[in-house]
């Protein structure tokens, strides 16, 4: 293992994050605060308890997931697309580093940022509502696994994208709908028959459900399925990354 390489990649990416520390944190904090005000206080007051939890508290895990997923994808995809775009990727290609070391460096940094942002949003949530956390370790584990697997997914998009337009495309066309339809703001039990069945094909449902379980002890789907879903998703991404570097797809002529 080339540990110095992993370290410098990780450090470089974290430095990029901390250079724009305020912007990186402020925008998710402001937007989630707005969600709390609008959905929690204004609308939530008119909504009954869901599974014994106030609506304001109920949306906290979903909101954290929403931000962590989108941040992971955008951070990781940008991190690898940028060197491709400006040409500094030549260094990675000519250095004695293998795909695993590159992935650990870039994906590790992107995931670390998302985890940090997720925790900051959770702290923000405490200002607005009472949120119980029944299984704190499970909560952290879900946060970490989601950050890593979505960063991996973002990494793949970053390699695939030929320009900044394409970089926005997948998150906009696929990720945002999946996340919004994935039970971030509601329990999928609230959906009418056919939609509920369809929702079960949405992988985000499993992640949000598991994460929400770690807070309130109730879930849309069994927790084991949630764990399984993350494992399958992360495994699939890892295989894809391995294949990309093996064949040099879109990176090595």
């Amino acid at each position: 293992m080339n540990f110095p390489a992993i370290r410098v990649i990780f450090r470089q990416e974290m430095a990029r994050f901390f250079r724009t520390f305020i912007e990186s944190l402020i925008s998710p904090v402001i937007s989630t605060s707005l969600y709390f005000v609008v959905f929690g206080a204004a609308i939530g007051g008119k909504i009954d308890l869901i599974e014994g939890v106030t609506y304001g508290a109920f949306i906290v895990p979903g909101l954290i997931m929403l931000t962590v997923m989108t941040q992971s994808v955008s951070n990781a995809s940008f991190a690898i697309n940028f060197p491709k775009f400006i040409g500094t990727i030549y260094e990675l290609l000519s250095a004695p580093v293998n795909y695993l070391e590159i992935v650990i460096g870039y994906v590790g940094a992107a995931a670390a940022k998302s985890i940090l942002i997720g925790l900051v949003i959770l702290a923000t949530a405490f200002f607005f509502v009472d949120v119980p956390i029944l299984h704190p370790f499970a909560m952290l584990a879900f946060l970490v696994m989601t950050s890593i697997s979505f960063s991996l997914f973002g990494f793949i998009i970053g390699i695939w994208a030929k320009d900044f337009q394409q970089l926005q495309l997948i998150p906009l066309l696929i990720l945002t709908p999946l996340i919004f339809l994935g039970g971030t703001f509601y329990s999928i039990d609230m959906l009418p028959g056919i939609w509920r069945t369809l929702a079960l094909f949405n992988p985000v449902v499993y992640l949000v459900s598991g994460f929400r379980w770690s807070f309130f002890g109730t879930a849309d789907v069994p927790v084991v399925f949630s764990l399984l879903a993350i494992a399958v998703f992360a495994g699939a991404c890892l295989v894809l990354v391995w294949w990309i570097f093996k064949t040099g797809w879109r990176i090595r002529q």
Partner: peptide, 10 residues
């Protein structure tokens, strides 16, 4: 220094 690290040197 980044390049030096990439090449596995402390």
């Amino acid at each position: 220094s980044f390049t030096r690290g990439l090449f596995g040197k402390p």
